[in-house]
Amino acid sequence: MRILTFLHSFEPGGVERVALRLVRAWRAEGIDAPLFMGRTDGAMRDEMADGLDYAVPRQPFSTGWMETLWMIAMLPRAIVKLRPDALFCAGNSYTIVALAMKLLLGRHCPPILAKVSNDLERRDMIAPVRWVYRRWLLLHAHFVDHFIGMEGPMAGEIAAAMPAAIGRISIIPDPALDEAQVMRLHHAVGRAREADQKGIRFVAIGRLAAQKNVALMLRAFARGATALDSLTVYGDGPERALLMTLCRDLGIDDRVIWAGHVPDPASGLPDFDVFLLSSDYEGVPAVIVEALAAGLPIIATRCSVSMAALTGHGALAHLVATGDMEGLSAAICDAGSLRQDRVASLAQARRFTVERASHAYLACFQSTLRQTPVHQNNFACLD
């Protein structure tokens, strides 16, 4: 069985990080798992590409601004050359590429297994855009052969958005970490408080983009935190300058630390007291799994249909509605009373390891190949 995974770049992103982790795991198990990259740009190249062979087309010019069109143009040639048995579509943002492969290659296109990596409700969209988005989702069932959700409640979400996909949906907990990382976080000893430090050390990890609504977090922190509390934000992105300006306007710039992108921000979690997430929408946020592994109390928005199940139905996190600044600031104000059940938190985090997911994915590929009419492997006419 040969599984071809395709990614735009090594730019930081949860979808890409998980896909690279799965490719490594499959190869370690002896699976033929080629990787096709649209380009080699991105901060994750140094931390995740070491020793990982991958194909990349020659870059006649900078292709980052048209990465989806570039992938659509380059991937068919890779498919013809590599002749995979199946394609792995790593997340929602790649399904347009999957559709293009079905249209361009027709019966020569291998079966496609797609992971649903993000919220399908998208209540953040304005009504006309959301109407179009829902129609686009309906099409997915006609060009994707099998769907993977990342937590139990996503099965119903996928079925509701794509009724024709019923019977072709599996749930595999997202491989946010490996077993060694989980245990390392669980047993890590955090940085000791300084003698004069009495406030709560809040921490957040995520790309500084609109989806994460870090502005909401900053406003809630300004209203709910004490003068002794601090907030460290790991990550970078297009909204960094705007968010730093907002910090100054709110008068909290002396208590907010912008840590930027670092290779392994999760390793620093034991140094903090409370984890914050303020996203408008997510799939299954890997950062929540990391916080669970580290045993941190969690304050988060209900940014996914899976958030309740992911956090033990309220036992392992304080959840507030998306966009609820009052609720988020009140939770931050009361953060000193939060306690985490580290045993239950660890058990939950261990569900989301690559060791468990890798085998489940391979079984799903095998099942999909058995159930899908054999595609034509004669690519001679396309060479």
Rank of each mutant, 00 (worst) to 15 (best):
E157R: 08
E157S: 14
I158Q: 06
I158H: 10
A161N: 05
A161F: 10
M162T: 04
M162R: 06
P163Y: 09
P163K: 07
I166H: 07
I166F: 00
G167T: 08
G167M: 00
R168E: 08
R168P: 03
S170L: 07
S170M: 06
I172F: 04
D174V: 12
P175D: 02
A176N: 03
A176R: 00
A176M: 11
L177I: 09
L177A: 05
L177K: 01
D178F: 13
D178Q: 02
E179Y: 09
Q181K: 05
Q181R: 12
Q181M: 14
M183D: 13
R184W: 04
H186W: 13
H187Y: 15
A188W: 12
V189L: 10
G190K: 14
G190W: 14
G190I: 04
R191F: 01
R193W: 02
R193S: 11
G199W: 03
G199E: 04
I200H: 02
I200F: 11
I200P: 02
R201C: 03
R201P: 08
F202E: 03
V203D: 04
V203P: 13
L208Y: 08
L208H: 08
L208A: 02
Q211K: 11
Q211R: 12
Q211E: 15
K212F: 03
K212S: 07
N213P: 00
V214G: 01
L216A: 14
L216Y: 06
L216M: 13
L218V: 11
L218I: 09
R219F: 02
R219C: 13
R219G: 07
R219H: 11
R219M: 12
F221E: 10
F221A: 09
A222Y: 00
R223H: 13
R223C: 08
R223N: 13
R223E: 15
R223I: 04
G224A: 05
G224F: 00
A225R: 00
L228M: 12
L228F: 09
L228P: 00
D229T: 06
D229M: 06
L231H: 01
L231F: 05
T232K: 13
T232D: 10
G235I: 09
G235V: 11
D236S: 14
D236C: 01
G237A: 03
P238D: 14
E239D: 15
R240E: 13
A241R: 15
L242W: 00
L243F: 05
T245D: 14
T245L: 06
